[in-house]
Design a protein around this nucleic acid. Structure first.
Length: 540
RNA sequence: GCGGGUGUAGCUCAAUGGUAGAGCGGUAGCCUUCCAAGCUACUUACGAGGGUUCGAUUCCCUUCACCCGCUCCA
């Protein structure tokens, strides 16, 4: 498995296979495609269903303390006011007029000094009346401002310019100039990342609504309803899988950053530390808590946070992403959003770089409090055991489904040299997807198509397995070709119905099939009656 | 959004200012007793729009998409 930071050719092979085998297609391809949107083909949609199903199971079915939610994508616009998305989910951007580099306007260091204004420039045969200005630190020679200005006009086609209309002015704490070279920036442009739409027929400002930029807010907004109906006590969680939309400035890296994507989010509500302390006398910290322990009532938020990081890492391993393909990134305190207490990202080593799959944030009670303030409805929870009312705090593991699929596909992709009995070597492409996520669990092949006994027996086996797993029946072409086709689809098992199966080579083999393993290409004989018992534990 | 690159069949690639070809694949048939065998037939493309031209896949412009770098990113 490649550990090279960027590996373009490997990524290209993955992309090509995804298209060839029907994992991922470009959205609206016959109309030329649409930037930032992707579709999942037959194999991709199965893969995606499996991943979401496994997450849902791990979160809700195998736990008593988490329940599900499936909320609408368009919600009351006030929600996005309360969450801060309307105001802060927009980045003001500026471009340097000289270098064309783009910066976030709110991250420009304010500068003071002298501004040199020009009205234009003139060369032997041309003149350009386009104002431009340069900021110089106090005391620097005017000549360096002129040098920058000449570079600027040279870019505009006025070489060796004579600068026109130079004036100067003092400036304090301006962010309109590039600190690196003094050049003027373009005026700030706002990029709000939320998709806007209108509810009802009239496109007026009162009808503005947004496609949700994250699924989390729906959980906070429905917190009270869930508390009232689900018979859960804090600590408990609400989870949701669903689409979210962000009008990315620059979608990149295949499906990694798309404008429409799917999230799997959990909001796990916990007691504020003062309540824990009141009830138990002490608050457990990560240092005093052995890894992998069951949740305890005296846990503080830091232990819960660590607990969820470990839970999530274990889950990724359980679906086939090895621990060494993942990295943890602890966001430094100074880079955290104002409401967050801590955030750990789980990163995967993609061929195009190590990138985030999931963020696990400790968000305090920011969100519930915000909605309490904006809606005027109490978000307080009455804790009978503690005899106290409080707004719960929250730990938020938030994962991107599409990113995860891409990670699984990149991780599974493998090329190996195989040598046949005649000594001829060739490249085998195999998707080593974990059986749990594999789109097709087992391929079922009659050894020969023109032998009715083999075909009918194969169909019998297909119908035996079909209620329990996704099977693929294939009778065309040579058996080796059918195996290799399934290798690219990531199908972990192949079952071949041969002449042993129908008893032609002795009664001791009757009712057995060839079971072929994708990864090792090894074959073994298994009784049809034992197939389910063999396969089920591996795919669940 | 800026700069660079690329767009020809499902994939990988070729050729050409005179109307596109291969390999692999796919489909159907024959054959075939375990790892992409063979034979036959079929299938499918110049990203889109405009211009120059008698004629454009080829030259020019615009646009769209993808890739790389910058930028951004929950």
């Amino acid at each position: 498995m490649s550990q090279v930071p960027t590996n373009t050719s490997r990524m290209e092979k993955v992309v090509s296979l995804c298209k060839r085998r029907g994992f991922i297609f470009q959205s609206s391809e016959i109309y030329g495609g649409l930037n930032g949107f992707w579709d999942y083909g037959p194999l991709g949609s199965e893969l995606k269903r499996n991943v979401k199903e496994l997450w849902w199971q791990a979160m809700t079915r195998f736990r008593d303390d988490i329940v599900g939610l499936d909320a609408s994508i368009i919600m009351h616009p006030q929600i996005w006011k309360a969450s801060g998305h309307v105001d802060t989910f927009a980045d003001p951007m500026v471009d340097c007029l000289l270098t064309k580099k783009r910066y976030r306007a709110d991250q420009i260091e304010p500068q003071s000094g002298v501004i040199y204004f020009y009205t234009g420039a003139r060369a032997a045969d041309t003149e350009l009346n386009e104002p431009y200005s340069v900021l110089l630190a106090a005391g620097k020679p005017a000549e360096s401002a002129r040098k920058v200005a000449k570079q600027y006009y040279a870019l505009r086609g006025i070489a060796d310019a004579e600068l026109l209309g130079e004036t100067t002015e003092k400036a304090e704490n301006t962010t309109a100039y590039n600190p690196e070279n003094g050049s003027l920036f373009t005026p700030p442009q706002m990029f709000n990342l939320m998709f806007k739409t209108y509810i009802g027929a009239a496109e007026s400002s009162e009808n503005i609504a947004y496609l949700r930029p994250e699924t989390a807010q729906a959980i906070f907004v429905q917190f009270k309803n869930v508390v009232d109906t689900a018979r859960q006590k804090v600590p408990f969680g609400i989870c949701q899988i669903g689409k979210a939309f962000r009008n990315e400035i620059n979608p990149r890296n295949y499906t990694f950053r798309s404008r429409e994507f799917e999230q799997m989010e959990l909001e796990f509500f916990i007691k504020p530390e003062e309540i824990v302390e009141k009830q138990h006398g002490t608050v457990a910290t990560p240092d005093g808590t052995p890894a992998g322990t069951e949740p305890q009532p005296n846990w503080g938020w830091e232990v819960w946070h660590k607990y969820w990081v470990e839970q999530r890492l274990n889950w990724y391993e359980s679906i086939g992403l090895p621990r060494e393909s993942l990295e943890l990134f602890f966001q430094p305190k100074e880079e955290l959003a104002h409401y967050a207490r801590a955030c750990v990202d789980i990163l995967y080593k993609f061929p195009f770089g190590t990138q985030e799959l999931e963020g696990i944030a400790a968000r305090g009670n920011f969100d519930l409090t915000q909605h309490q303030t904006h809606s005027g409805k109490s978000m307080e929870y009455f804790d009978q055991e503690a005899a106290a009312k409080y707004v719960p705090h929250v730990i938020e593991p938030s994962a991107g489904v599409d990113r995860l699929l891409l990670a699984l596909l990149c991780n599974a992709f493998d090329e190996e040299e195989v040598t046949d009995e005649k000594g001829k070597s060739e490249t085998r492409i195999v998707m080593r997807l974990h059986p749990r996520v594999a789109p097709i669990k087992v391929g079922i092949f009659p050894l020969l198509k023109n032998k009715p006994e083999l075909v009918s027996k194969a169909i019998e086996v297909r119908d035996l397995l079909r209620p329990h797993m996704n099977v693929f029946y294939d009778e065309t072409g040579a058996i080796g070709r059918r195996y290799r086709r399934q290798d690219e689809a990531g199908t972990p098992f192949g079952i071949t119905i041969d002449f042993d199966t129908i008893g032609e080579n002795g009664p001791e083999f009757e009712g057995t099939v060839t079971l072929r393993h994708r990864d090792s290409m090894k074959q073994e004989r298994v009784k049809i009656s034992e197939l389910l018992a063999f396969l089920l534990p591996q795919i669940r």
